[in-house]
Design a protein around this nucleic acid. Structure first.
Lengths: 154, 154
DNA sequence: GCTTGACCTCAAGTTAACTTGAGATTTTAG
DNA sequence: CTAAAATCTCAAGTTAACTTGAGGTCAAGC
């Protein structure tokens, strides 16, 4: 019944991720492992899925912190079931939809702003700096449709 | 005829960007300035637009290096005209379209992958690690529709 | 049962994009 | 003309996400 556990080398190879990154993820609480008597890591098979999830999410621009938040919803004590992952997937879909929407808004506004010919920065909806929208704080205000900037920090 | 030039403080306030960032951008070749007899920076008005452009582009996830590349297309010797900016804007639109498309592909594949119920990582089109597509190199292969990952480094 | 490849830990280095701080000079308002 | 506000330079610090290296241990095959 230990045959279901894999070494860090195997996980690294199958996931296409370097060992160092796996250890780093574990240190950040994104992965878990049990140890052999000698202290080496052994991963349950579902960690492979976790790694895939992590890399995929990073690819759409989410931070490890965000990802850790999502993974925290998975059960700790048992191996995640199909429906655990499905639930997670649904939330992801929402995140992706928001990001797509934000980019579409940006694209459309870019057309109307710099691209339109008005060239008036003071009237630009895309970039609304401090002296235009000081009451709402400084910096770009409309970039993400003025919604919560999902997944992007700073 | 010097009234058309603004100080770093004014640019910072109007653009909603700290002085330090403006100096940094200049050091990176993203902005330009002339100096007073005493050595202080004075910016032409069109630098305000440049700053807006920089921040906007950063917001969609482009690196300063990418942005520098785009800005390098603007004329050095004269103030950019409306059509200079329009041309730049059109290229941006293409970049945004590509990013949007990549996210849509990702969203749709997520549905079919983790979300579908097959739960088979070996069959997952989203995340295709080394042992599935070793011949094409390791790491995720289909994440951006297997196209050139526009604007993202590493 | 031993050698060799796989692992381990911990500290330090790396890149991007800035920020912070120190110490000195320039501008500007009164 | 002078004091306060704005700038200047340069070096060092910061965060994220890892990588690299040193020095040493574990495990698997012949």
């Amino acid at each position: 019944m230990n045959e279901t556990l894999i070494s860090i080398g195997e996980l690294a190879e199958r996931a296409g991720v370097p060992h160092s990154a796996l250890r780093f993820y574990e240190a950040q609480g994104l992965l878990k492992s049990v140890r052999t008597a000698g202290g080496q890591r052994r991963y349950a098979r579902d960690m492979l899925r976790r790694v895939a999830f992590i890399r995929t999410a990073q690819n759409v621009g989410l931070s490890l912190e965000d990802i850790a938040g999502a993974l925290a919803q998975l059960p700790e004590l048992r191996t995640p079931t199909r429906s655990d992952w499905t639930r997670l997937s649904k939330r992801w879909r929402a995140v992706l939809e928001e990001r797509i929407h934000a980019l579409e808004v940006l694209r459309d506004q870019l057309d109307q702003c710099i691209g339109c010919g008005c060239l008036s920065l003071t009237a630009c909806k895309l970039y609304n700096p401090a002296d235009q929208a000081a009451a709402r704080g400084s910096g770009p205000r409309y970039l993400l449709g003025d919604t919560r900037p999902v997944g992007r920090k700073r």
